[in-house]
């Protein structure tokens, strides 16, 4: 079994940042433990031998004749577009100030 990558504090913090999920101190140990357990178990895929039987993939494909024709439709009213937004002004969604990361 290949060594599973350790889920350390830095990696956990990185994942939280990527996913925009805050990781308060009191939850860190628990989450790290759970992730470590799962990652260790799932590392088994790393050693499996998946020699592909043939090139015949089961994945669907799409061809140009199945694509949508380029025809514009009347879009929903702006009130419908904004209907589920938590904050709006001047027919726009409103968010907190964007600060460059």
């Amino acid at each position: 079994m290949p060594n599973p990558p350790p889920i350390d504090d830095a990696l956990l913090a990185h994942l939280g940042e990527l996913a925009r999920i805050s990781l308060p101190k009191q939850r860190q140990a628990e989450l790290r433990g759970k992730l470590q357990q799962l990652v260790a178990a799932f590392s088994s895929l790393g050693e499996a031998d998946f020699d592909m039987c043939d090139g015949d993939s089961a994945r669907q494909i799409i061809t140009p004749d199945e694509l949508r024709e380029d025809r514009a439709e009347t879009p929903p009213d702006v009130s419908e577009v904004l209907a589920n937004s938590p904050q709006t002004a001047a027919d726009c969604f409103v968010v907190a100030r964007v600060v460059e990361p």
């Binding site: 925009r20 904050q87 969604f93 409103v94 907190a96 964007v98």
Partner: peptide, 21 residues
């Protein structure tokens, strides 16, 4: 928390950053 659905309370979009929200 921008386009639809719930947004965390106690945030004032004129003061917080969008990352925090």
């Amino acid at each position: 928390g921008v386009h639809y659905g719930w947004r965390a309370a106690n945030n004032d979009s004129s003061r917080q950053s969008s990352i925090e929200t």
